[in-house]
Design a protein around this nucleic acid. Structure first.
Lengths: 195, 195, 195, 195
DNA sequence: CATGAATGAGGGTTCATTCAT
DNA sequence: TATGAATGAACCCTCATTCAT
């Protein structure tokens, strides 16, 4: 007796979980249906295609991500505080959209060539602008080290944060904020003892 | 059967490249054949199956990786120097086996359940022992910070290094050793300016 | 069951139009429903099946056709006048049941094998008897040419009339009677100028 | 041991036969395969898709048709002789491409909207120009009657000829030329005895 | 060594139909 | 009367694999 949008969301969550676990291509629509408790054909009452499920999963995630990011970027914080806020926000998104993030990590590269998924490329560009810009501001402001290749630093921070989706399990030992705190501590100050 | 090991290697390299670019499942055996300049059916003169190509690619990579790692671990270095050597060695492997590393990143999780690929799990276990053990030694020896969750640190370092395979292009601006140096600098000392 | 014969007729007319335009097989029950302003499932309150809609459309048309034909054949006209009356009646039916006629043209052949549609074969037999008989009477009576293969003549007249359903649009430039007149003129006297 | 283009032609001929008998949409690719003596999947070694089989069938037919028509139209005949030659050529094409003609009759209307089959519309336009133009020339030259609606005449002649494909069986009682002769006689001079 | 043709399992999708509400 | 959701069979097509040549 689940109202329609409810059922949609259920199915979509199931699909996201399976996509994340097995990869999009390796996931059969029958598997999703099994897991969601209906027959494969019935999925098409709710969705146009397997691809459109993927689309909905990814764009819902990105929409929410940018809502968070835009808030941070609009807050007028200093570079270090901005980085801290972005990392924290990222871990919150990982917490809420773990499956979507994992899918994004694995599939975005080859999806980006499809017209339908062009927004992935756009999002990635915005993403790079935001992070790289903040790092550059930080270097100029004397907050971040000047002796590092800035693009390398960008990739380092970016990957470091997002790969966490591959092992993160919500409800595990650490809250997203706690993980963010530790990650930030490592990224900013290193793991070595200062001498 | 293997009349010409040269041709085999060529085909395998091609396959690795395509697997890395498109994902294993999304890669058709015909695509590999096209790229290698023969017909799909002809691949089966050289290899038993698509899976066995993958197998060969991954195990060749892991064999070489462990040759390098075992050398480092047997050298009796201190914890910090061990970490430095492992990271450097890792980037060298990324340089030499970029495609294999990318495949490993993307596919190892779901492959691990197949009997044929059990060695992936074993390798991963050895890997964890080596890195986690070194980190723990380092904490005990006062080389690494004591205020961090050690497993989190482990994942941080591990991911940080290997994801690089997703963007690294051999012959680009930086040598593996140079990248390793900068990564180590970030991981050990952080990206923030010390105050 | 048939609470509202009005709605039935509406839906049936819609179905006929769509069948005629797209072909029976290519027409989805959803398309009919869309066009009729209800949901696909709701059609089944009014009709047993897609096939039964088709059945009703075709048999309604044939019933009316035979009502007209039987009147003509019972009138005791001479062969030429009978042909003229049959052709005129045929164009009137095309005018009234354009969609049904078009469907009949396209689908009757493969439908005829189904038990449910055996009446199509029977009707076609009666049809042939009526036309061929009249032509033969006409040849014997000296009204029609004796140098033509009579079956060829039959097919010629038959097809010539009924294919018109494929381009005829009610409310166009010509009334059915006017078209019948011109067709008869061509069929009976030819399009060449007499020398 | 049939050479490749041979096998293609075989399969294509089979497909044409089945399409003509059952309609394109109602024909399953498995049926074609059965009839051709291979498995459904194997068809795709030879053809891209069911649609591309249809395409090849229709365009091969139209190519040959226009070869014949263009020869006739280039011959500089008078209007009556042109019509005679076109009709004769048409029956020859029906004889050689009976299945293709039947398919064309049944399917061209809804295919024409697909970009891939735009050539159907173009061909139909050329066709109309050729026939209608010749009829108009004939009317002007006093060869054809002036009291008939010229478009009606065009449709009459056109349909009259091509519908024959629906009942024509090669190797039957009449050669294409003989059928053409009788049809022309009826079309030009009518079936009534001259009084 | 390689080709060309085929196999057969399975994948995404469509669609007539059912039925509780 | 109509809806919304689901069913299940069938469809077109893909692809790893085989094998005679």
């Amino acid at each position: 007796m689940t109202a329609s949008p409810e059922r949609r969301r259920e199915i979509l969550a199931t699909a996201a979980e399976v996509f994340a676990a097995q990869g999009y291509n390796a996931t059969t629509v029958r598997r999703i249906a099994d897991e969601a408790g209906l027959l494969a054909g019935s999925l098409y009452y709710h969705f146009d295609s397997k691809e459109s499920m993927l689309d909905e999963i990814l764009s819902a995630f990105l929409d929410e991500l940018w809502e968070g990011y835009d808030g941070v970027l609009a807050a007028g914080l200093g570079p270090r505080e901005t980085i801290e806020a972005l990392v924290t926000e990222s871990f919150r998104e990982i917490d809420r959209h773990r499956a979507a993030v994992a899918i994004y990590q694995k599939e975005s590269r080859h999806l980006a060539v499809l017209p339908r998924f062009r927004y992935l490329t756009e999002s990635q560009q915005k993403f790079e602008n935001a992070w790289l810009g903040t790092l550059e501001r930080g270097v100029a402001a004397g907050a971040f080290r000047t002796d590092l290749d800035i693009r390398l630093t960008y990739r380092f921070v970016r990957d470091t944060v997002w790969v966490a989706a591959s092992w993160y399990r919500p409800g595990g030992g650490h809250s997203p904020e706690e993980i963010a705190r530790q990650y930030l501590s490592m990224v900013l100050d290193g793991i070595a003892v200062r001498t």
